[in-house]
Every structure is written in C-alpha cells, then in structure tokens.
C-alpha cells in the first residue's frame, strides 16, 4: 500500500514553500482550490460509498460509507493537489518568452520553441476573430438561440470561417518566417541571455536523479507488496 503521507508532505513541505519563494503563493492556492473543489464534491461521496472497504463508518439506506473509501478519495485529491500546484507554480512564475529563451539556450531547436511559444500570442488574436465572426453572421440574420436544431444550424457558420481564416493565413505566415531565415542551417544565437549558474545546473540534475530514484523506489515497493 502506498503511503498516504507522501503527497500531502510534498504539497505542504515543498510545493507551497516553493510557490511562496517564487512569490506566487496566493494565486497558486486560489487556483488549486478552484480546480480541486469541484472534483472533491464528487470524489468524496462517490468513493466513500462505492470504494470496496470493510471499516463501515455510516450507513444510509443500502449505501455504506467506508473509511477505506474516504481514505482513497483523500489520496486522489492530495495527488491532484501536488500535480496542480507544481504546474501552477511553474506557469504563474515563468513567462512564455523566458521559457523560449531558456529552451533555445539549452539547445532545443528553434522550430520546437516556435511551436510551443507562438500559440500564447495567437490565442488573443483568434479570440478577437471569433468575436468578429459571430457579429458578422448575426448581421446576416443568424440566430444563436432557440431549440437544439436552430442552435446546431449556427455551428457551421461560426466554426468554418474561423478555421478557414486561420488556414488561409498559414501560407503567408510560413513565408514570413522563411523571409526571416527561420530555416537557415547552422549556428544560431540568442539576444537575451538568461544567467545559468553551475549550482543551478547541479540542482536540476539532482532533481532529475531524485525523480528517477523515487519512481523506481515506489514501483519496487508496489511490486514487492504484491508478492
């Protein structure tokens, strides 16, 4: 059986202090609660009543609430808290541009960096466009309310221009990239240099080693417990 304390320990002992150090503790906590709460609302009752267990805490009609079920719900929720807070601490403290520069400096190909970063700047553009398309089709008498059939009829006039418009832009965007030597072979440089100390490098390798060791150890525990 996996130790229930691990996830809670990492969440409280590592991730929250780390978020605080990055200066994003408040938003991280807010958003962790925001995403976990609705899950908890379903997870706790569902698992308390339906997870197999023997330690009965409560009986309502022919449903029984077990301690094992409650514990399992807690395990899932605490793991999700770790997942969510780690990702949020990262995404709230790093701008896409910083990430791009760092990746390029670490030798990641500019093509991959482009794929990962440009969507962030494209999202607002596409949203504006979506709003314009909605307005343009309403101006042509398209209704967006009504029964299921009427609403379904609005789907194609909204979706097709947005996607087609994006596709039509692809050619010119590709040419604009080529015009700026995007596919030039050979040595590339970076205007912005993000400082990277030897200590930081060791720390990253240390984290990587820890993760591998931890996963290996927990797997080993898992299998030996079965034997």
């Amino acid at each position: 059986m996996v130790d229930y304390g691990w996830a809670t320990g990492i969440f409280l002992g590592v991730l929250l202090p780390w978020s605080a150090w990055l200066g994003v503790l408040r938003p991280v906590l807010q958003r962790v609660v925001w995403v976990i709460a609705p899950l908890a609302l379903f997870l706790i009752p569902i698992h308390s009543f339906f997870h197999p267990g023997t330690t009965v805490l409560l009986t309502i009609g022919h449903f029984t609430l077990t301690q094992e079920g409650l514990a399992y719900a807690y395990l899932i929720l605490s793991r999700l808290a770790v997942l969510a807070s780690a990702l949020l601490a990262f995404s709230l403290s790093t701008t896409p541009a910083e990430l791009a520069t760092t990746l390029t400096q670490q030798g990641v190909s500019p093509a991959f960096t482009y794929l990962l970063i440009s969507p962030f700047q494209l999202i607002p553009e596409v949203r504006t466009k979506a709003a314009t398309i909605l307005a343009a089709q309403q101006a042509r008498g398209m209704e967006t309310a009504g029964n299921l059939w009427q609403r379904s009829r609005a789907l194609v006039p909204l979706v097709v221009p947005l996607v087609l418009g994006a596709l039509v832009d692809v050619e010119e965007r590709a040419m604009a990239l080529e015009a700026r030597a995007f596919r030039a072979q050979g040595y590339k440089t970076s205007l912005v240099q993000i400082p990277d100390s030897v200590a930081q490098r060791w720390f990253r390798w240390g984290l990587f080693g820890f993760t591998v060791a931890f996963v290996g150890w927990s797997q080993w525990q898992f299998f030996t417990s079965r034997i």
Binding site: P110, K188, S190
Partner: peptide, 9 residues
C-alpha cells in the same frame, strides 16, 4: 532574424 542567422549579440 538575426538569431536565425547566428549574428553575435
């Protein structure tokens, strides 16, 4: 573009 051409900072 300059980064793509490998121009020094």
């Amino acid at each position: 573009g300059l980064e793509n051409l490998g121009i020094e900072p």
